[in-house]
């Protein structure tokens, strides 16, 4: 093989590697972050619903402390099932680009009933002014709940608008890149078989190196956003993403190195046979 042909084949291998890296990144992001079902699973597996229940309960207790009411006023107001349902609703709204609508009617009814029960038991006399304060207190408790479920409704609504567009773009690019990769791999196979294996090795080592770099340069496991429950879930999702890329990298590397070893062994055998004959 001429030097020029070899050089061109290695350049093509480099291009194939870049395309493979791009397509794997797109597929991984699409199946991890942009997948509604995967996000719901991640929230569940990271214990988000249970952890958030604890945070909401504690935040509401902070509102109860200066109110004059006992903490029992919060009994059964919040449940893990309701939190689970509402978080799933928020996720559904984000991925279908719909406005978030969470019902707090059941929370209000239970809280109201608990307040009335305490007022009757302790024989409080509730003036119009006190009733207005109680209404404010109920609103504060409900706001505590909705703020922890949605965090920032405006931000979430704007994210939802972009997710659809990104998903469509990723699908189109993935198809184009896959076609390009297949064509170039076929070309490489006939031009320089070794270069094909080299492209796999380059892509594989890139992802392994990315994983190692992110472990040292980026403090993913120390992220703190909004609250520790949300942070734990974000860390879980990011670590899953990095692990997926690492596994993809290892698979590509092993395919590449195995392929090269086989081809070079065959080439060596042919070379030695040719040498002996001549």
């Amino acid at each position: 093989m001429s030097v020029a042909k070899k050089a061109i084949s290695y350049i093509l291998a480099e291009i194939v590697s870049i395309l493979m890296i791009s397509v794997i990144l797109l597929i991984t992001i699409n199946s991890n972050i942009l997948s509604k079902d995967n996000m719901k699973k991640s929230f569940k597996d990271s214990g988000y619903y249970y952890n958030l229940y604890g945070i909401i309960q504690e935040s509401a207790e902070n509102e109860v402390m200066p109110s004059g009411f006992e903490e029992t006023v919060l009994d059964n107001v919040f449940t893990e099932e309701k939190i689970n349902e509402d978080i799933d609703t928020v996720i559904d709204c984000i991925y279908s680009n719909k406005k978030i609508e969470i019902s707090t009617e059941s929370i209000k009814q239970t809280l109201d009933a608990n307040i009335q029960k305490e007022i009757q038991e302790k024989e409080y006399i509730v003036s119009d002014e006190a009733q207005a304060s109680i209404n404010e207190f109920e609103k504060a408790i409900i706001d505590t709940y909705t703020n922890h479920i949605t965090y920032s409704e405006n931000t979430i609504n704007s994210i939802g608008g972009h997710i659809h567009k990104i998903q469509s773009l990723i699908k189109i690019f993935t198809i184009i890149l896959c076609v390009a990769i297949i064509v170039l791999l076929v070309v490489l196979f006939f031009v320089n078989k070794i270069a094909l294996g080299i492209s796999f090795i380059i892509s594989g080592v890139f992802f392994v190196a990315l994983n190692l770099y992110s472990g040292t340069a980026v403090a993913v496991n120390n992220i703190l956003l909004f609250n520790w429950a949300f942070s734990k879930t974000i860390i879980y999702i990011l670590n899953n993403l990095l692990n997926s890329l690492f596994i993809a990298g290892m698979v590509l590397f092993l395919i590449g190195i195995t392929y090269i070893v086989i081809i070079e062994y065959i080439n060596a055998k042919l070379f030695v046979k040719y040498k002996k004959v001549n």
Binding site: I201, V261, N267
Partner: peptide
């Protein structure tokens, strides 16, 4: 000779791959 010829070639391929990674 086959084994060592293959090893030689594989080492060169790995060096080429390393250069490729550095370029990326």
């Amino acid at each position: 000779p086959v084994f060592w010829k293959a090893i030689e070639a594989i080492i060169i391929d790995i060096i080429v791959a390393s250069i490729g990674i550095i370029i990326i």
